[in-house]
Structure formats: C-alpha cells, structure tokens
C-alpha cells in the first residue's frame, strides 16, 4: 500500500459520517481497497425484516470507490463524486458484516472511473454492484488533511 493510501484510508474512515456508520479499512490488494461495515440495529431500513438500509451501502460504495482512485495517485488532491449508480442484486443478510471492494479501472486526466462490489465475504456472491465517476481536482481543499483540518 502506498503511503498516500495509508494516510487517506485513516482519514476516510475517521470522517464523521463514516465513523458514525462504523466503517473499517480492511486492506488493499492490487490497488483495490476493501472497507467493511458491521451489522448494527440502528443501520436497519425496515424494523420488520432487519435488512440494512440501502443508504449504508451507498455510503460504503461511495467511500471505497473514492479510495480506489487514490490508490493510483502519488499525491493528495480533492475529489468529488460526479455520479454513482447502485444495482441491488439481493437483500443483505441481517446480522452479517458487509464488505465493499472497489477498483478504479480507468484514471483519466480529469475523471476517475470506478466499479465496486458489496458482499458478505464472498465477492462471487454479491449483494450490490456500484459504478461511479469522480471529478479530480474538484476544489482547492486538499483531501487527507490531519485531524486539525490542515492539508497534507
């Protein structure tokens, strides 16, 4: 893992929304980062069946996909999600953690193209599939600042 990715994964999972959902960084393989969210009662979308809300998956896909773009970069830069599409392939199983592995399959000068899969441990049996595009250099604020908010 690059030093940049290591710094950024720490920063990403510590962002207020990601910390609220309990995102954890699992690792990176061939430039593809994996994040995990544990099952929690307050993340459920429907009290009757206990299935995790799709919004949690959206945040997981967005965050992991953004991180996958940084695995191709040497220095931090601001990045904004341009669009994101999620296909829900099957309901998540109540009680199980959800993993997301994302890949930036094309990094262009201004845009990063990503795809991601959410699963319960076996990527061949996915819960959801996401594709996204990210706009590079989207603002003057450089991502990955330290805890005080100062840029790297």
């Amino acid at each position: 893992m690059t030093e940049l990715l290591d710094t950024l994964q720490r920063w990403f999972v510590s962002l207020p929304h990601c910390a609220t959902l309990g995102f954890e960084f699992i690792g990176v393989e061939d430039g593809k980062p994996t994040l995990k969210v544990n099952y929690r009662d307050d993340l459920v979308g429907n009290g009757s069946n206990g299935v995790i809300h799709g919004g949690v998956i959206t945040s997981l896909v967005d965050t992991t996909s953004a991180l996958s773009v940084f695995s191709h970069l040497d220095s931090a830069e601001a990045m904004a999600t341009l669009d994101l599409r999620i296909d829900y392939l099957k309901a998540a199983t109540p009680g199980l953690p959800i993993y997301c592995t994302a890949e930036c399959y094309k990094l262009a000068r201004q845009i990063g193209f990503t795809r991601a899969v959410c699963h319960h441990g076996d990527p061949a049996d996915p819960i959801a599939h996401g594709v996204a595009t990210f706009m590079r250099g989207s603002s003057n604020a450089i991502l990955g600042g330290d805890a005080t908010g100062a840029p790297l």
Binding site: H17, G55, T58, V61, A80, L84
Partner: peptide, 11 residues
C-alpha cells in the same frame, strides 16, 4: 457525505 445524500434520497 455523498453517500449520506444518496441514502436520504433513497429513503
């Protein structure tokens, strides 16, 4: 968070 905005819309 963009994912949160997505969750708000889906909900």
């Amino acid at each position: 968070h963009g994912g949160l905005i997505g969750g708000f819309l889906e909900n």
